[in-house]
Write a protein that binds this DNA or RNA. Sequence first.
DNA 1: TATTTCCCGCGGTTTACTTCA
DNA 2: AATGAAGTAAACCGCGGGAAA
Length: 228
Amino acid sequence: MAVSPTSSSCLELSISMPGFTSSPPLNSSGGEGGCTVKDLDMNQVPSGADEEWITASMEDEEESSNGGPPRKKLRLTKEQSRLLEESFRQNHTLNPKQKEALAMQLKLRPRQVEVWFQNRRARSKLKQTEMECEYLKRWFGSLTEQNRRLQREVEELRAMKVGPPTVISPHSCEPLPASTLSMCPRCERVTSTAHDKGPTRATTITTTATLSAKGPVLHSRQPSSTAC
DNA sequence: TATTTCCCGCGGTTTACTTCA
DNA sequence: AATGAAGTAAACCGCGGGAAA
């Protein structure tokens, strides 16, 4: 079975600004084109000297990584997230040169870019796994339903059984047991052929279950005289 | 060819922070 | 307004695989 869900997962990154939820916006241009509270970010320094602030935060992080004060968590700006997402769409992994360039462009350390890509891949994989899980659940549900229906059909066919032969093969025109259900090797249809009280009127019941990219699709029971 | 070293990705986990009831 | 639970994402850790020496 080939499960190939669409992998166009685009996870949204939330940008938040701790400590500013109840304070007035730092940037007073809160209207259109301006910066809402949600647009603001920890990386943004109130005074506007954000490069220095980021540099300082990097130093803090490096210090915290070797036993210093507890690490502070960097929050990426919207623009940083956008660029990272963009490059992730192009490539899910980065070579050292790309990583360096992207880090430079984003004013982040290469390690941060690397970590972001790792986490992004993990999120992507998680989402895909969830989709596959959903897909399999639906498939299981429809198979169960199909199974139930086929069981009913078997019962019906058995009930119709008057005396042998009651079922005629559409291919060989040979008599078959009423309970015979077979899978057509060509079109992969589950078919059962019932003889409707008498050798001249044969009703062929065809039930098919196929899988599409969107999920399992069940074709409903349809009488047909030309199965396969 | 076998061993060692280095690098990288991954799975799992921790932690800082946000959101919501 | 305060608070705790749940959720999210950045960062870390340890391990294994592949490539180069």
